[in-house]
Each structure stands twice: as C-alpha cells, then as structure tokens.
Design a protein around this nucleic acid. Sequence first.
DNA 1: AGCTTCACG
DNA 2: GACGTACGTGAAGCTG
Length: 993
Amino acid sequence: MSLTHQPIGPGSHVFLVDGSSFVFRAYFQSIRQDAKYNYRADRLPTGAVRLFCAKLFQFVREGAAGVMPTHLAIIFDKSENSFRKEIYPDYKAHRQEPPADLVPQFPLMRAAVRAFGLLPIEQDVYEADDLIATYAKLARARGADVLIVSADKDLMQLIDDKVSMYDPASGTREERRIGYNEVIEYFGVPPEKVVDVQALAGDSTDNVPGAKGIGVKTAALLINEYGDLDTLLARAGSIKQPKRREVLTDPASVALIRTSQKLVKLVDDAPLEISLDDLGLHQPDGKTLVSFLQAMEFTQLTRRAAETYGVEANEIEPDPAFVGPAGWRGRNGEVAEAPAQQAPAAPAAKLPTPEAGALTPAALAEARREEGVATKIDRSLYETVTTLERLDAWIAEAFAAGFVAMDTETTSLDPMSCDLVGVSLATAPGRACYIPLRHVASAGPDLLGGGEPPPAQIPFDDAIARLKPLLEARSVLKIAQNMKYDLLVLACCGVDVAPIEDTMLISYALDSGRNNHGLDELAKKHLGHECIPFAAVAGSGRSFIGFARVPLDKATEYAAEDADVALRLWRVLKPRLAAEHMTSVYETLERPMVGVLAAMERRGVAIDRNILSRLSGEFAQDMARLEAEIYDLAGESFNLGSPKQLGDILFGRMGLPGAKKTATGAWSTSASVLEDLAESGNTFAARILDWRQLSKLKSTYTDALPGFVNKATNRVHTSYALAATTTGRLSSSEPNLQNIPVRNEAGRKIRKAFVAEPGHALISADYSQIELRLLAHIADIPQLRQAFAEGIDIHAKTASEMFGVPVQGMPSDVRRRAKAINFGIIYGISAFGLANQLGIPREEAAAYIKRYFERFPGIRDYMDKTKRLVREQGVVTTIFGRKCHFPRIGSSNASERAFFERAAINAPIQGAAADIIRRAMARMDAALATAGCSARMLMQVHDELVFEAPLEETETTIAVVKRVMEEAPHPAATLTVPLQVEARAAQNWDEAH
DNA sequence: AGCTTCACG
DNA sequence: GACGTACGTGAAGCTG
C-alpha cells in the first residue's frame, strides 16, 4: 500500500477521528443488537469491529456533517503510560477494565483501518487527544479546515473558526456539530477558557481532581468574573463565599487545581511519528478491503464494499491473516480465550410437508400458527345452542375429539359472587358454540329491559347436568384461557372441571416478560386476530349492562370466539412447550397451581370486622388530632392528601432545604424526603409522616377490607394472578392480601383482624432468608453456604467477613449495614441505591460494594455472567428452568438497559424462590391428606403460607407443612444450602407470624 | 388515566 | 460520555 502525499493547505478538509471513543461506542451499540451478529462462526467477537467498519465506510464514502474529507486520520490511545500518569498517578485510575468481549477486537480495529487504506495512528506517552490537538494545530496553521470526530468534551478546548467538532449519532443521541457557541453552551465559557474551567471543575470520569465543591457551573461563573484561572487564583482572597475562598486559597487545594490544569490541557506539539501530509485520503483497494471483511464474515458490508469498489466478492479469498485462530491474535500475538457461552440456537428448520407424524413440535407450532392465521376467524359460523339435542350433539363431538376449549360468561368479574350466564365450547378451529343459560331480555336502546320475556334457553339445571359429565370426564381435556376463573365459577355450580389446560399459563411459561398473557393480546400476537372487546358487547362504566342482557346473537359471537381463540392458541402454543423445553415448567409449576389457587380463593379467610371498625375509629381520631396540629404549624389549612399542595407549602412557602423533584418535575414529598426534614428537627414534616401512615392504614386496610367480605361465606376471597409477574411470583388483588402491614406496631394491629374460625388456629409458615440462601447456592459462595449450614445469623456473618468484626457481640449498626448490602446484592446493587438506603455518601457505599465483591468474588462472577447472558440471549433461567425474558435489554436508553440488567440479576433468585413455594403448594394438599390433616391453605405471601387447622391438629400440620416446604426443591434441584421454615400457630395472623 | 405515595416480600 | 439508579407487586387519593 502506498501513501499519497497530498499537501495540506487552504481548502483541505482534515478529519481527525478519535478512534478509541469510536471503538467503545461501536461496542456498546453492538451489544444492544442480536448476539448472532456479534460473533464470527468460531465465536470470535466482532460486533464492534462490524459497526466500526460500517462507520468508517460511511466516512470514506460520504464524509460527515456534510463535508467530504481530503485527509482522514483515525487516532487511538496506545498504552497505559500516558505522561499524565507521571504528573498524577491517580489519573484515569478507576477506569474499569474493558469488557472481555471487546479486548480481542482492539487489534482488529487497527487492521480494519489498514484495510480501508488508512494508517492507524497511535503513539507512546501521548494520548489520542494530544495527537489530535497536534495535528489540528498543524493543519489550521496551513489554512485547512479541521473536523474532530469525537464526543469527548476534553477536545472542546481546540475549537475555533477553523476547527470544529462532530459528534456522530449514538444509540441515545442525535448527531451534533459542536462549534464555538456549543462550547459556550456546555462549559459557560469560550473554548480558550475551557481548560481553566475544567481545571477547577475536575472530571470524575478521568479522575481529575479539580477544586472540591466546584462544578462546571461555578467554575464558569468564576472564570467569567475574573477572566482566567491565574487572575482568579491571584485574587482568591477577596472572594466573598467562604467555601470558595477557602478552596481557592488553600495551598494543597491550589496545587491540585494546578495539577488538574496540566492534566486537562492537551499537548499540541507532540513529536509526530506520521506526518500530517501522510493523512491523505484515497480510494481503498477493493480487494484488500473485501478480503478483510470476508475474513470477519461481514456479509452485508462485504457486498456493499464489493459493489462500491467494483470487485467480485466471490473471487476474493478471506484474508488468511484473520481467518481461524489468526483472527484471535491479540495485541501481543497471544490467542484470546473464547468466551464460554452457548452459540445462539439455530433457526428453526424449514417446515416439512405436513405429515403430522414427522413434524417436530416446533414445526407443528409453526404449521398451526400459519394455518390459524390463514383460516380467518368467521364469527357467523358460530352456533347458539338452545335445545338439548344440539347440546348433546356438541358434547358428543367433544367426547369424540378428546379435548374441548371452553369459556364461561358471567354477570361480573368476581368469580365468588357472580352468576353463570352461559358457556361456550370449541371442538376445532372455527367450530364453536355458545350455550346461553341465564340470559334475560336484552337491553334496548335505552338500556332498559322493557319487561319482555327472556330469550329461549335450555333450563339451567338441565344444561349443567348434561355438561357436568363432559367437564369432569378424565378422557376429555378441557382447555381454557385463565382456567382458574372458570374452575371457580363452575365449582359454584357443583362441577369439578378436570383435566385442564390453560393457554394463559402456557403462554406465561413460554413468554414471561415478552408480552402479557391476556386472551386478546395472545390472539393478536399468535393468530393475527383482533377479538371483540368485552366492553363492546357488555358496555363499561355507566353503560355496563352485564352479560346476561347482551342479545344472544352478539353474545354468541363474543363468547364462542373466546373458546375458538383459546383452542387455536392451544394448538399453536402447546407444541412450543416441548420444542422449547418448557414442558416441565408448565407441568410442575404452572398447571398444578390452577386447582390449588382456586381452592384457596374459594375457601377465603375470616376477618373480624369489629377489630377493623374499632381501628378505623382510632385512626380517624388520631388523624383529626394530627390534622389540627399540622394546620396550626402551617398557619393555614390545606388538603393534606395532596402532595402538590404539601410540596408548595414545604419548599415554596416555607422554603425548606432538601427539596427533590419527582420524575415529572414536581416537588417530591415522599417519606424519605420528609424523614430527612423530620430528622433535622422539623415537627411539621414529622406530623405529616404520622398522618400519612394512619391515612394509608385506614383507607387501604381498615376501611376497605370489610367491603371485601363475601355475603354468602362471610370471608374475604382474594384473587391470585398466576401470570402477572415477570419472575414467577403470584400477585394478589381484590383485596391484595400480600401487602397487609407487618413492619410497624400500628400496622400489625390490622393483622390481628385476620382470625381463625372457632375451634381452629391460623398457622403461618415462612421460609427464612430464602432468597439469600438461593444466592449462596446459585453463585456458589462458600462462606455463605457454610454460614447457612451452621445456622449462623447471615447478616452478622456478612458483616464479620466484610469488616472483620466477630459475629459474637456484633454492634447492631454494623449488622444493619451488612443486611442492607445483602438485600442490595439481590436487587442488582448500585452504589447510589445502597447509599440511599443507608444514608451514607456514595463513595462509602461504593467502597462497601468493592469490599463485598473482594470477600465474595463468586457474586461478582454471577452478576457479570448474568448480565452477559441476558445481553446476548435476552433471557435468564431459574434453577428449575423457568425463563424470564428481557426483550428490551437492547434498549438504546442506557439507564433503561441498566434497569433491565438489575432485574435480570434479581430474576433467577426471586424466580427460584417463587418456583420453590409453588412446588410446595402443589404438593401440600396431598401431603396433608396423607397425614390425616384437615388443615387448609388459605394464603400465600411470596415466602409464607398461611393455613387454617383444627386446634387439635396444629402440631401435626406444622410438621407436615415444614417438611413439604423445606423439601420442595427435591428432586428437581438439590440445593447446597438447607432451607429453613419457621411455623407457628395462633388465633390471629399477627401472633402466628 | 397518570402520577405519587406507600403497604408487602 | 451521559444519565438515572436497588428487585417484584397492588391500591388509594389527587389531579386534570
């Protein structure tokens, strides 16, 4: 390759590209894309190289910012021995190691630059920024225009009328041109004073110290006032603000500022190894370029380069210097280690001819999906069944098929208080019927019934008597969407539906985190079909007429469609379970829960309404007292429940310090903000907190719970959602029984209202530290495993490992910190979060985390591995095989990505705990029955099960419950830590807990 | 309906 | 380099 020697002069456009920042950008962009594009077939990571090449290709062909370069230099940082390290050893000290996947790509970047016919520029001692400064100065001296391509604000000091910057678009930002005005916008000063501002403000990313307590804003203010840094420091004694005067006159601090100045100022007279004129741009050699791109296996780029430079790609061999292990050569010729990971799954085989026997499950699912999409849903084909003959015919058809999809229509969404209005059945795609049972005269245009007779229907009891044998037949599989609901409704009619299949739960097992699992959404996604919205037939809000008044033709279209769609979904989704190895998750963790939860919900729990109404009264009195005091302190009355008004008073009228903003920019009045105020002696804030607590307890619990007592059973029947969370946990609603207060005295009074029926006790059994135990198992942490094996207090043990304090006589505050760290770890720790939690500076929190990872390196490994896995595959798996998907892990928003990474770290832990308690619940009824216990499960609160047992059976029940819960992982998983369950019996939930 | 706050694990 | 921040839920009240 020969270099052209084009002299640089007026009219030249010199592009100086900050190669290192480009490389990192390319890398971070690459990991947001599908992993299959980021590796060569031999697993050499090449994603960053690909994006780097694409960008280079663009520059060479089209230029940037509307300018074509005449000269182009890609400039890299060569090594660690920057002269700045000599000046200040901590310079860039806490930079992280580059990601493992990026390291083998560094030499390939240089090779790519050469393949484009350019010289990669890098020099010892000088950083890329210094070389850019030097080239820029030389070029402008010759009258050329210079475009620095970089996002690094350190380069802004170089900008003038001939030198500008261009920051290309990244995942998060638009491209932008940075000139004189943009520098003033960013630093508050023109380019020539940027160094002075940076010397004062410092730079945390490069570890440039600057002046303590002075940021860019203050620095710009000072420099603008005094003209420059020298003048400022000379006259610092006259500064009014004591803090600023102190930091600008103290000799040690001034020395740091001077050092910072040297660190920040770019060297513009570095001895260049490659002369300015050697940067001339000429057309790349097509063969060389294509040969390199082929070795990298970049198919798109190869094709485009071949077209652009008029070469025939087929005739060019991949460059042998980069094929096979040669591609792995590192900087020093060593062979990099392939990351230990699975190759992405091969794309599903092309659909074979539809001979059912030869189909793989995946192909079957795909075939049915296509068939389902092709066979349009035609609602006019549905039948309204109003005679016993037709009903019998449908039932016979279901028996013949061996499966039937079904759906129930009711008067309300509450399965414990609604009436069954009709049943729909489907025996084949498109073959569905609706059996109205309790329809009344349809609503007229005025929504009134008008006194007409009800439409002709099969008498309710007759229809149920005919349906019961079908719905209970072991030989016929009953398929429904959210079968728990239908099970509850039909149980009220004396029908015990079995065996069952649930499309919602199949979808949940397959696609948790990818989409929600409602029928309408699944129909849209898998069948391309838009279901009739419920509100369109039954109305909503004030216009709600209830399903019983929907005319039969419309009711049939809606109801039969649901059964038809459920059947079609089942045909598409069910084969995917086998194909995607999710059958055992579905069969052991999902399907068994339907009957278990239905029974729990149906049983309900007794609450003592007297206790609650007495509490409501107490709370109301206390609140009134507090309210008066608060208005007195405020000097005015206002709406206490309005965060807006409260914020205005606190931070507007009173002008209190410590104001924070919420996501939408309003004043935050959250407990943490008010606690800070209260701690500094603000009585007003303290009273608000007291009032808030009582208000919460009263409105959410003592006032609301009695409204959920079922008239017929006199008990509260929550509803557990099986497919609501991304981790496998249940959720509870109407009422939510999983957030009944327990953490403070006032709240616990509410638990006393959850009582056992006469002659019975409530038994609460909860897993002790299950998530930390699972962390110790999953990340394989010897010290933690041993502590659990020996029954040592785990937080004390952590504290002792970290701070070297003996477990015996551990100060409670030390233990508290270790406990917060332990929880933080489970949540995907950040220094910010831990600092917030503990009320300590972020640096201190960061030091804790560092120490924690030093003591327990396995946890860092686990976190890194999980993050890598989720970025590559978009999914994490619990030890029981449950998958949690994070499709948005590739988001272009960095904070959003970090959020999903933390969630992905948490999911296998929270999810495994959820799996374990599900396993226990699935086995519990049989175990109790075998032991002769008539105890019944009433509630689940994530790591706790609550039972009601006859007084004389409490002891046996506790033994059985403990055993089933502690042995729940077996035989699917053998934990390396023991599980421990604490169980107690009492008359109410508070005392049992 | 969206936001804020707060109850739980 | 910038930017927001501990994981998972559901309910109530205010606001527009």
